[in-house]
């Protein structure tokens, strides 16, 4: 096991720079998720760590050793690809034993290592099958098995769950996390799904157009997003981000509504952020018109209109109001986020 560090890492494809100086520290045994919208450079960063892309500038270290010029096979890493990249002409056993076969390991070692990985992943019955004869989840497990048998310092996952259906994705998510807890190997996991990131990570690195927007523990990012991008990206349903300005009676939203401000709010605030679940029902609060009600059972999501400002609220209580009705809501002032009108950075309350 090893720690991993990115030091001012840059990547350019020809004249186009796609990573603009990334600094991330990953502790030994940590599960780190790189998350961001497509095209943000997260997969490129992972491929640079794997050695599949060269590094334009900066340093990547694994176990305090700079690996910029180290070929992939000597970096002591294992990677699970988005499409699994299983060798279709080899059985599950041969797929998992391939790295050992290349290293000319004795047959007994190969068999015991594969058996160990197969046991961890419940693949014992499938070792003689070909990838085509496996379901999506089984292929996923074989790809993980291929990584496990190598006993790597670092596991890399490149959007491993994106080819699975929703139910299987939740199941495999739990399996990967459990695997990490058993093996305690440093893991770097790339996804565009912020729920995957929130549920699996010890640390999340939010990326956007080649920059790290914020890195931290999942709830840290949820509770104190550093800027507008992270605020909008983390959390589902997404945070209400209402543009406007600070006025005498409160926050004057561009849509005409006036929202209460927490005490000591900075006059520089240009965006008012409040998560849907941080509204509570309050007959004396803001009188908002219900637009749409979406009950999910555990909670009810209500879209309301306050003057011309649209907001979403989520309540644990069952709502009887229908579209067109007026309900009273008030935001929890201690959980309101204000963002600078110029930089979009979060203003400390």
């Amino acid at each position: 096991m090893a720690n991993v560090a990115f030091r001012n890492v840059r990547k350019a494809f020809g004249p186009v720079e796609v990573l603009h100086g990334v600094d991330v520290d990953i502790e030994d045994g940590e599960f780190v998720v790189l998350v961001g919208p497509s095209g943000c450079g997260k997969s490129t960063l992972l491929r640079m760590l794997a050695g599949l892309e060269n590094i334009t500038a900066g340093d990547i270290t694994i176990g305090n050793r700079v690996v910029n010029q180290v070929p992939p096979k000597d970096r002591d890493i294992a990677m699970v690809f988005q499409n699994y990249a299983l060798y279709p002409h080899m059985t599950v056993f041969d797929n998992m034993a391939f790295s050992m076969k290349l290293a000319k390991a004795p047959k007994a070692v190969m068999e015991s290592e594969v058996a160990r990985a197969a046991k961890i992943l419940g693949l014992e019955q499938l070792l003689q099958r070909y990838p085509r004869q496996l379901s999506g989840g089984q292929r996923q497990r074989v790809a993980m098995g291929r990584a496990i048998v190598r006993n790597p310092q670092v596991f890399l996952f490149d959007e491993p769950l994106s080819n699975l259906d929703a139910k299987l994705r939740v199941q495999m998510r739990a399996e990967i996390k459990e695997l990490h807890q058993r093996l305690k190997v440093t893991t770097v996991y790339v996804t565009h799904d912020q729920i995957e990131a929130m549920t699996m990570a010890d640390k999340i690195v939010v990326m956007n157009s080649g920059n790290v927007e914020q890195a931290g523990r999942p709830l840290e990012l949820y509770d104190t997003p550093a800027n507008l991008f992270v605020a909008g990206f983390i959390g589902s349903p997404a945070m209400n981000l209402i543009p406007g300005r600070v006025g005498s009676g409160g926050f004057e939203a561009a849509g005409g509504a006036v929202l209460p401000l927490p005490p000591g709010a900075s006059a520089a605030a240009g965006t008012y952020g409040i998560r849907p679940e941080h509204f509570r029902l309050d007959p004396n609060g803001l009188q908002a018109r219900v637009q749409l009600v979406e009950p999910t059972g555990s909670e009810t999501q209500v879209f309301v209109r306050l003057a011309d400002t649209l907001m979403s609220c989520a309540f644990r209580e069952r709502i009887t109001a229908g579209p067109g009705d007026i309900i009273g809501i008030s935001p929890d002032l201690s959980l309101v986020h204000l963002f600078d009108s110029g930089t979009g950075q979060r203003l400390a309350a």
């Binding site: 794997a50 992939p72 790295s99 291929r146």
Partner: peptide, 21 residues
């Protein structure tokens, strides 16, 4: 698929081994 070659590269194969296997 190019990812097969990448996987083989990470598995520690030489150019000849990638062709052979």
């Amino acid at each position: 698929s190019p990812s097969l070659y990448e996987a083989a590269l990470l598995d520690g194969s030489s150019a000849w081994q990638r062709f052979r296997y």
